[in-house]
């Protein structure tokens, strides 16, 4: 399942939004998700994707124009997380010198 599809699943389940109204161009603002709603959405994203959204990015998430931009941001988090996992396969504190 693509990141966008997973985001849509969260929105349908937690926000009672009709699936057919969600497109890559849908904005969070048009879904009436306010600043508190964004905090909650970030929590759900962290849970579902097993990523950590830094505090510094929390405001930015709310300012994403569309769901496709949000999906892109989550993909970046996933890529960063996976890169870190390759660098630290055992979760050791020391990174392997390149």
């Amino acid at each position: 399942m693509s990141t966008f599809d997973t985001l849509c699943k969260i929105l349908v389940k937690d926000y009672a939004i009709a699936a057919e109204s969600l497109t890559p161009d849908t904005t969070l603002a048009s879904l009436a998700i306010d600043s508190l709603g964004v905090i909650e959405l970030i929590f759900a994203i962290e849970d579902r994707f097993k990523v950590s959204v830094p505090d510094i990015d929390a405001t930015a998430v709310g300012e994403f124009g569309t769901l496709s931009e949000l999906a892109h941001y989550v993909d970046q988090l996933l890529a960063n997380r996976d890169a870190l996992a390759v660098a630290e396969p055992s979760g050791a504190a020391l990174a392997t010198p390149s």
Partner: peptide, 8 residues
Amino acid sequence: FAPPRLRM
């Protein structure tokens, strides 16, 4: 209460 409100 609808779900988003209920969670608050």
